[in-house]
């Protein structure tokens, strides 16, 4: 079983459109959406939920209004401005609490509980293209890196059970902790970039990251014809990091239209030039990795 991750650094480069097409093109695979802050893959793969697990992360302070005698010490000590005064007690603002436990410690009435917080959910689903593991982080919740790890573990387990050839991971944007969680230990990282200043800037950071973790990186330049000069600079940058450019996609309204229709590009317009290029990209990945077995 081979694990491949699709990442981009900057958002909006077409990462999920590419991943969605791989869901159609690859055989015997598990799809994993690790872009847990803004999971979108389900919008084009139309999954049917089979089971869901709670994702618990950190703790959150909760004031018991019956025990609170409004001394205000908690609010004085809270450095995150996360405690507000109500009429005859105090309350913790759900968005704002860092879970540091200082208020729990200083409360003379022991009126503050400190339960684990339910920060999101992890889902096992089925799609017409095979199983899919995805997740959702609650609004304002942090620590998506840990949820990424959970999605990957569950996807790998699912892949082992069904003897899958591939685990295909839609990675998170950026270059921070969630991305590191998404790429460590994978067999291949495919970077989808675009010829813009921030696209190129972030590409370099992601290439450094994959080099650091000794993960082979391949590159697809999306919308490459928007700025041919920058595309050439990206090719030069790729050469420096020995990352092969395995495909170039043109700036095309088809990507937008497929998204509006809620379908993978190769399914929305199977005979289009774009679909042919995406198919060629997937075949290159298969040949470079020696297939998924």
């Amino acid at each position: 079983m081979k694990e491949i991750v699709i990442i981009s650094g900057k958002g909006g480069t077409g990462k999920t459109s590419v991943t969605g097409s791989f869901a159609v093109l690859a055989s015997n695979k598990v799809m994993a959406d690790c872009d847990v802050d803004a999971a979108d893959l389900h919008l084009i793969l139309d999954p049917v939920l089979l089971e869901q697990h709670k994702f618990m992360s950190g703790h959150e302070a909760v004031i018991n209004a019956d025990l609170c005698d409004s001394c205000g010490l908690c609010a004085d000590f809270c450095r995150f401005d996360a405690i507000e005064q109500l009429q005859d007690s105090y309350a913790v603002k759900h968005i704002g609490c860092e879970g540091c436990k200082v208020c729990v410690e200083v409360c003379p009435q022991s009126a503050i509980d400190f339960p684990s917080s339910h920060s999101g959910d992890c889902y096992h689903s089925t799609t017409e293209y095979g199983p899919m593991i995805h997740a959702r982080l609650k609004a304002g919740a942090e620590n998506s890196g840990k949820l990424v790890t959970q999605v990957r573990n569950e996807a790998r387990q699912c892949g082992n059970e069904m003897n899958a050839s591939w685990v295909i991971i839609d990675g998170p944007p950026g270059i921070g902790c969630p991305v590191i969680s998404a790429i460590t230990g994978v067999d291949l990282a495919l970077i989808v970039t675009e010829p813009t200043l921030s696209g190129k800037h972030d590409l370099e950071r992601v290439l450094q990251l994959s080099k650091h973790f000794s993960i082979p990186a391949l590159i697809v330049i999306n919308k490459w014809d928007l700025n041919i000069k920058l595309s050439a600079e990206i090719e030069a940058l790729a050469a420096v990091y020995s990352a092969e450019i395995i495909g170039k996609l043109i700036y095309s309204p088809l990507f937008n239209l497929a998204q509006i229709a809620g379908l993978p590009v190769v399914k929305y317009a199977p005979n289009s030039q774009e679909a042919i290029e995406l198919t060629a990209i997937w075949q290159k990945i298969e040949s470079i990795t020696g297939g998924g077995e």
């Binding site: 979108d40 919008l43 509006i260 809620g262």
Partner: peptide, 21 residues
């Protein structure tokens, strides 16, 4: 946002957060 399913989905998450705040 963008008038796509992706855009709409992420917009609704941001709206939920702003409403709570």
């Amino acid at each position: 946002t963008e008038p796509t399913k992706f855009g709409l989905h992420d917009l609704s998450l941001a709206v939920a957060t702003l409403r709570e705040m």
